[in-house]
């Protein structure tokens, strides 16, 4: 029986001969592993390696396993690893509904079925009736929720968070943080949170891995 969750097996990332990241760890489904460290310590670089978009300037080794399967050499789109950045990064040329549809896998056939999924997702995040809206007209908190839901609709098997709460004000930050962790737990996703904010780490409530 393969080990469920996200496993980093001897992952070492170097740049110009300097070791930025050296980590071996396992994140179980529903667990949050917080990675903390100062700017330039390689936190975001580690996430790029896990999703498969590490720049050619880096030298990396080690395996990334998801539910026991080695995904290190897979294309990013085949890894089923979702990511949320500091910015919501909603595609500005698409409506809110179209952004969500972008996340839906093609295996969900039929226009009506896809629309039903999108409407249900919008209702889940308290944005029912927002499908035709321009993403740029949403508030920061609303954008963050759409971004999270778009990612969840793509059916990820793990979730990476690259300081996604840092640009939100205190009130919204608490709510969005709660929503993200609740969704991750509900979907049984291993979560790797990168942050330099101790409040995020405290809210996540899991283990903390420090990068120097």
């Amino acid at each position: 029986m393969p080990d469920p969750g996200l496993t980093l097996d001897g992952v070492v990332i170097r740049r110009d001969g300097r070791t930025l990241v050296d980590i071996s760890d396992h994140v179980a489904p529903g667990e949050v592993l917080t990675v903390m460290g100062p700017s330039g310590s390689g936190k975001s670089t580690l996430l790029s390696y896990i999703i498969g978009t590490l720049d050619a300037g880096f030298a990396a080794q080690g395996q990334v396993k998801l539910n026991g399967t080695d995904i290190t050499d897979l294309a990013p789109e085949a890894r089923h690893v979702g990511i949320l950045f500091q910015d919501d990064l909603l595609f500005p040329h698409l409506s809110v509904g179209e952004n969500l549809a972008f996340g839906l896998r093609a295996s969900i056939k039929g226009r009506a079925e896809r629309k039903r999924k999108i409407d249900a997702a919008l209702e889940d995040i308290g944005l029912a009736g927002f499908a035709a809206r321009d993403p740029d007209t949403l508030s920061g908190g609303q954008k963050a929720r759409v971004s999270l839901m778009r990612m969840l609709l793509s059916g990820p098997k793990a979730l990476l968070l690259d300081e996604p709460f840092s640009r939100l004000d205190t009130e919204r930050r608490d709510k969005i943080r709660e929503l993200v962790f609740a969704q991750a737990r509900a979907n049984g996703l291993p979560v790797l949170l990168v942050t330099h904010d101790h409040a995020d780490a405290d809210a996540a409530g899991g283990r903390v891995h420090r990068l120097d």
């Binding site: 498969g52 294309a75 990013p76 789109e77 890894r79 979702g82 950045f85 990612m151 990820p156």
Partner: peptide, 11 residues
């Protein structure tokens, strides 16, 4: 980063 998000979403 738009490209990274799109790829993580399956594109």
């Amino acid at each position: 980063r738009y490209g990274r998000v799109a790829r993580a979403l399956g594109a």
